[in-house]
Design a binder for these strands. Structure first.
Lengths: 197, 197, 197, 197
DNA sequence: CATGAATGAGTCTTCATTCAT
DNA sequence: AATGAATGAAGACTCATTCAT
């Protein structure tokens, strides 16, 4: 009889917490963020938090999974008729654009705090797999069209594109003279040089 | 009752602790390593630890500073007559070789746990500065010799070399199909492509 | 919009919850049973639970009071013409039979978790008083008929019968070699020896 | 060099905590006793508590094991030349005497709160086994001397003696009119009646 | 009447650090 | 110098209970 479950409200609240988690983890790291701080940021009681996530760790996993899903969606939304190399470049630029949000950079660093947690390791894997999968598919097609070098497999090329993307974030985090706006353009060039036949 | 303040003994003991710290931090992260575990690994009492380092954080800083110093020494030991580009490649290969020690990769991840700590941020800065400085000097000379592209400043080129190096570690940490032995050779090629005029 | 306050439905629901409480408390103890688990077992929402009982403790009290009432009813239903000693033996056997239900034994243990709660202490008192009262009456009559020893008052004799009954449960709970089926018969003998003149 | 470990001091401190645990658990039950209350009673910091016991549960186990050990010691200290039946009676009286300390009664009840915890179940088992073992040995000898009934095995007789002892505590806890001083003497009589040929 | 989302006080436990020996 | 016992602040998480729907 009582129909108290509003799925929309539930989802909205959940998103609210995920958002707060992203903010806090990015700013102070995973270990540096107490559940109390998390709740303060989200404007909820501590009990409520654990109503939505069984564990502080589970929130981190949810954040990562959200990222993985968004990556998959991004690739899925790409028009099939576009050239594969264009998609690769578009993805790299899309990723660079995300790094404009300092939270993205912060989150990457925050992950270090939870090395070894199998649940997180798996989520990180899913995350990077999503990108590598999308890239691999494009690069396989590009190779068929002889648009990229063929001394490396599509899988390896995808990994190397990610080397650039990940290294890019890393520099953003450690080198104050290295900024997104100044270097974003060179990232495209670096990818071109890396893939050229 | 002669005081036996043996400076050598002191330094040796300190190194012992640094070594233990490197091992533990790499394996379980910074937050995941208790001082108790640290002392167990080093075979000392907890009181002794705080004789050598005022803080757990101070040990991490010491480890980072040791790395920075070794990087500076590495560049200093390079014969001046060698070609500058050779030095760049040698450094990159040297770095890749260090990644063979899983502790190096682990330590990089461990740093995420202490984002925001000014002391650590500064140490990380010193660390990456040491490498960037060494590389910048080489690349400035190489540019003078017109061996590298000139649309980027030596400082920027150095950063981009580090993009590759850091991205390389990152992939090692997340992509199980990406191994040092298999990809180390391609790293050299990637640097060449990146720097080519 | 007719109000459908069906008292039968209400009573049935209440019994359902009492039943669930008996099961849960016996299995996991009082403290070990969360209201959530209670509701799951009863198949109701948490809000509903507090419609029927103001407190988790109130449920325990209700369970105990139910037991006390059943004991009183048991004695009341005994035909007056039966010999008093027979009634004592019948009660003891009746109690032993109840111990066949592991929940009875479990509930006894569960009570320990709430030592000191005045409400529960009172309920436990009511419970044991019900049995002692019934027994005392029989034993007073039996004494009048000179069927039992007279160096102890009927009140004391009743208590001693309960010593046997309670000790019997206690052994069932701790001694794996002591089972209801094997020892139930000896319980009758023990009572006889205890009461004999 | 540093010899900071004073085993006596350690043992004394441990006993202090065990003592505090006995007091608190008996008064408010296991679940009703917070570690904070425990530390307050013992006059130590919370950290110190966990220096001596890894867990609140471990303290309970330690208390039980102490009881089991004392029981074993009690039987071991009995002169072999004494008659076995005398030992049985002496034990029963010894147990009754212990019930003079209200903490003993309280502790028994407190155990109910931890039903199902394997560690505690095992400790309770060890505790009751210690008594049953001691009694069984005496009763076996008594039976050989034809001083007790032979329709029950020594093992069973031991269990039945414990029925009386445990039931005795139970009454003390629930029946306000049933006191140690008044009934202790009758306990001996009950045992005699129970065991008589 | 029935529901379950929301709450926050309270729990056990960890751990960096101090200090007497 | 070296030790490890002692500390208590801080953390993650649980759960009985309330209340708007």
């Amino acid at each position: 009889m009582g129909r108290t479950v509003d799925p929309e409200r539930h989802a909205a609240r959940r998103r609210l917490i995920v958002e707060a988690g992203l903010t806090c983890f990015a700013a102070h790291g995973y270990a540096g963020t107490s559940t109390a701080a998390l709740c303060r940021e989200a404007g909820i009681g501590s009990g409520t938090f654990f109503h939505y996530f069984p564990t502080k760790l589970a929130l981190l996993v949810a954040i990562l999974d959200l990222g993985a899903e968004q990556t998959r969606e991004w690739f899925a939304a790409r028009p099939a008729q576009g050239g594969p190399l264009e998609t690769v470049h578009a993805y790299v630029d899309h990723a660079a654009a995300e790094f404009t949000d300092p939270r993205t950079v912060g989150l990457v660093r925050a992950l270090g705090a939870v090395v070894g947690e199998p649940e997180v390791d798996a989520a990180v894997r899913r995350d990077s797999d999503a990108a590598r999968d999308g890239l691999r598919r494009c690069l396989a097609e590009a190779r068929r069209r002889e648009q990229v070098r063929d001394d490396l497999s599509p899988e390896e090329l995808a990994s190397w594109v990610l080397v650039l993307v990940d290294g890019f974030v890393s520099q953003l985090a450690t080198d104050p003279g290295f900024t997104v706006v100044a270097q974003r353009g060179h990232l495209a060039g670096a990818v071109t040089r890396l893939l050229a036949r």
